[in-house]
Design a protein around this nucleic acid. Structure first.
Lengths: 193, 193
DNA sequence: TCTAGAAGTTACAGACCGGTAACACCCTAG
DNA sequence: CTAGGGTGTTACCGGTCTGTAACTTCTAGA
């Protein structure tokens, strides 16, 4: 029986999803493997049968996050096929929504801050995934016909990254409240050049 | 003997300075009080005679950081007395220098990310100190004769915050490398309005 | 020199952490 | 029905963490 309802989720996936959520909310060093497995309705042994170590689990969580981000990008393309400028505005809207909904920032950035050891295995992954996201945004800006595509993409990246961390330190009434206005203003300004 | 050489530093100050440095480099949850006291050439009992708890020490460290930031602002005023626009450019230069020199981001922001518990005592302090810095930058922009002073100040804030975290996730070759160009461009653009 | 308070030392409590071993269980494919 | 792999359970290891107690040593000031 292949279980058409698909109700039964594999322990590995449950652990991964639960860990993602808990790492996101409480930070990596803020949750232990015991808490994760308990919340996932399983146990520590099962976790260590599927993941080599906590660090390994962290890395898999980051990859899963990157995968979700990919889905976002595909949604942009699906909703505005071929219209790169509309996709760029959709990116801004999505970013703003994340700011409003979420409260906690980017998992990769948070992990990078928390895992300060320069040789931590997750650092490689974070760097490469962040780099991929950057390239994607640069590509989008370029395809949208913006001259200084790299500069706009990098500026938007920094603005979003800054907004996410500002949200956590100053709060929602802080500078991050103006994110959309800043981003849209920048796009207009770069398009006029 | 009042010790004119002032070589002898009080244990409390040694602990505070050492803790600041270590928290900055390795994060709050990344260093224990034992490591701090050992590096400060003292012991745990002395730490707990001067600070109620580790959280209390963290808060004092953040206040000390804010105090250092104040000194920066006074330096701007001293170097460019009355010339607010020059002080704004000095702020950009200082921010860029910090990015190049440091590698690790803003202590307050890092702490906010690490201490995810919403009721953590340090959160109040972080918020109020960050708010003060923001107000200061807004005031500088306004006094420099910029129309939309709040918007420029907030944009610069987010850019710097973003650059600091981007530095830790993507690295020095990432978007943060363009910080000065972005900031100067923004100032020019806002002045033209 | 005497004294009081600050600082150092050692040991410990109690909790949590990541990770492993041994064993019992269940469920599904053959 | 049966075999075997995935899973659950319990107990444990060694280490680290914050925080405290009791005691000794140092040092500055009268």
């Amino acid at each position: 029986m292949e279980d058409g309802t698909a109700e039964r989720v594999r322990p590995r996936d449950r652990i991964l999803e639960t860990a993602r959520d808990m790492f996101h909310k409480h930070g990596i060093k803020g949750v232990g493997v015991d808490a994760i497995t308990e919340a996932a309705g399983t146990n520590k042994m099962t976790l260590y049968r599927h993941f080599e170590s906590k660090d390994d689990l962290v890395i898999e969580c980051l990859r899963a996050t990157a995968c979700s981000a990919n889905a976002m990008w595909q949604k942009f393309e699906a909703e505005h096929p071929g219209d790169k400028l509309a996709q760029l505005h959709a990116w801004v809207r999505m970013a703003a929504d994340c700011l409003l909904m979420d409260g906690r920032g980017c998992d990769m950035a948070n992990a990078a801050i928390e895992l300060s050891e320069t040789d931590h295995p997750a650092r490689r992954v974070i760097k490469e995934l962040k780099q991929a996201q950057r390239d994607r945004l640069v590509g989008l800006c370029r395809d949208a016909g913006i001259g200084q595509a790299e500069l706009l993409a990098d500026t938007l990246s920094l603005l979003l990254e800054g907004a996410r961390v500002s949200l956590q330190s100053v709060g929602a009434e802080g500078p991050s409240a103006q994110f959309v206005r800043m981003a849209e203003g920048l796009i207009t300004s770069f398009r006029a050049r």
